[in-house]
């Protein structure tokens, strides 16, 4: 959906996806590796996807970019926002190769979900084969749901893993992610470094 949500962290920020991002999205997803749904592989298909997305309620797509103006580093989305049980899913998470934005992106996504949308829980579903991302969610402190899920991966039903973060767990997760993101900022902005 069209939205005007901007979130700024220490090094990275989230801003709404725009039509002008379409070429970047195609390029980023093409380089994203085996676990990315192929999705829209041409500029025309991506523009059509975005046009449909702009009309879809409860769906927030963001570009991850550096707040120092150094450019875009990825994409992420919060979607399937359900007002009945105040839940949503996050995903469509693609980072440029070599990007260090994962931790701060997760922090900003959860901040959006819990502090802006006032949700009660957020889930994320990952292909079981994508072991590094499964590990990442668990390192963040998310609980793995015991039942397995099936994820459509390029038209093929594939085994998946679902994690969930409940609002009551958010403060502890925030503390951990925030500490890492703040410390990382000292590597990107030497002025933040403590005197040695």
């Amino acid at each position: 959906m069209r939205h005007d949500v901007h979130l700024a962290g220490y090094t990275y920020g989230l801003r709404p996806v725009a039509t002008s991002d379409a070429p970047y999205i195609v390029e980023l997803r093409a380089a994203g590796g085996e676990f990315i749904n192929r999705g829209a592989t041409t500029l025309a298909a991506q523009l059509a996807w975005l046009a449909h997305y702009f009309e879809r309620h409860g769906d927030y797509c963001f570009v991850i970019e550096r707040i120092d103006g150094a450019g875009r580093e990825g994409l992420v989305g919060v979607y399937d926002v359900r007002l009945d049980d105040r839940s949503a899913e996050w995903g469509r998470f693609v980072l440029a190769r070599g990007s260090n934005a994962a931790v701060e992106t997760a922090l900003l996504v959860y901040r959006f979900a819990f502090d802006v949308l006032a949700l009660e829980r957020v889930r994320c579903r990952t292909l079981a084969e994508n072991a590094k991302v499964v590990a990442f969610h668990e390192s963040c402190g998310l609980a793995r749901k015991p039942s397995s899920v099936t994820i459509d991966h390029d038209g093929h039903p594939s085994p998946g893993v679902e994690h969930e973060l409940a609002k009551r767990q958010w403060p502890a997760v925030m503390k951990r992610l925030d500490a890492l993101a703040a410390r990382f900022a000292s590597a990107t902005r030497p002025s933040l470094r403590a005197p040695s």
Binding site: N100, A131, K132, A135, F136, S139, L180, R183
Partner: peptide, 20 residues
């Protein structure tokens, strides 16, 4: 597998702390 993006940051910062 356990060496994910979050653990990578923890590793880098632990190295910085341990070795100055």
């Amino acid at each position: 597998v356990a060496w994910d993006s979050l653990k990578h940051m923890e590793i880098v910062f632990a190295l910085e702390d341990q070795y100055g």
